[in-house]
Design a protein around this nucleic acid. Sequence first.
DNA 1: GTCTATAGACCGATAGAC
DNA 2: GTCTATCGGTCTATAGAC
Lengths: 220, 220
Amino acid sequence: MPTPEARVRDGAATRRRALHVALDLFTRQGYGATSLRQIAEELGITKASLYYHFPRKDAILQAILQERGTEAEDVLAWLRAQPPPAAALEPAVLRWVESSSAEKLRGIRFLQANPLVADGLAGTGAERIGTPLATLADELVALVPHPAPEDALLLRMALLSINAAVAAAAQSDVDDDVVLAAARRSARALVRELLADLPRDEPREPPGVARVSPGTEDRR
Amino acid sequence: MPTPEARVRDGAATRRRALHVALDLFTRQGYGATSLRQIAEELGITKASLYYHFPRKDAILQAILQERGTEAEDVLAWLRAQPPPAAALEPAVLRWVESSSAEKLRGIRFLQANPLVADGLAGTGAERIGTPLATLADELVALVPHPAPEDALLLRMALLSINAAVAAAAQSDVDDDVVLAAARRSARALVRELLADLPRDEPREPPGVARVSPGTEDRR
DNA sequence: GTCTATAGACCGATAGAC
DNA sequence: GTCTATCGGTCTATAGAC
């Protein structure tokens, strides 16, 4: 409870603004290249004041990462509740890709700009994204009947379609809607490529490039 | 011509070793986080000696980037010499993707680890990669009959399949061969997705998910 | 070609007044 | 909650001896 006296400028608001400004600067310039002085300047306070809200520089980073969602775990839970094995693959991947909001895209852009910072951090919330996603990838690969060496990689690429779309859209102004649409189509195309040329000892699928699961898609 | 006297340790070799070591460190730690002292230490010389070979830190970066190839320009030249318009799309994309060697993958990994450094540098060789690739993408989009808003993005994603594959393979030890195989399949799948659901006013293509161009592929 | 030594700038973090 | 002032550290880059 803050003391009612004094010219208190509302600490909670400053903290929130700081996180927003920091995420922006970290994305544009990189975490390491962004100084506390710069963040403070943009906030209209001094570096020392910033230390009132965050004890260390990387505490800002942690606070940002800790705001990330638990979408991977959600998809994982959904997947484990599904009865049919191979048919669940495409819906699961699309579920993950479509769990992207505008706010999530901000996070992805940050991670793309700071790839080394992201995985160089342990116990800070970064693993709350990476580890569940890796688990999801592993469990999905297990659904592929006889995976070729590169099939696991192709599946990871399908899951990372949003990231790829964001990367491809970098330094060109594309609407988030368009980015998401491209990511969806990429994910779908890659999953189908994955299931297209399997050694067909489970001849339930018609040959050729097959629609494996119509699913809940909205191919416009 | 070096003076024949003195304990001259062969300057050209030192320079070459320096570039190799620097690329390695820049990729693992990032450009900004790698100090000249660290590079010099790994070379067995001092920081000041490194300044004999490179006048500034970013001269090392420039030297690395200037070694990059001209594959995009090559593909561009090939494309412009092709007679049929739409049929050239898939072969062109595959040409670009398959122009990846182990050495090129090293370059891609560096760029992935340093996305901001790469495009923050002007007139240093970075544009010798980015600009021709963008031109290639633009000319290829022009081959698509009635591009949807996200089609251009999807095409860029196809071209960047190698990058996406490298990103998906990060922090897991996958052979370069496997990475390249996954990139090829991704590129092919995305190009076909791109050509699959066009407004068919050019009814030369069979409906459905079509093999647009058998091309020179080596589907394993 | 490599060295020692140092200038000069900036950074993260802390102390203490208001 | 924000401030001024400052400490200790690391960095790029330069000067000059060998």
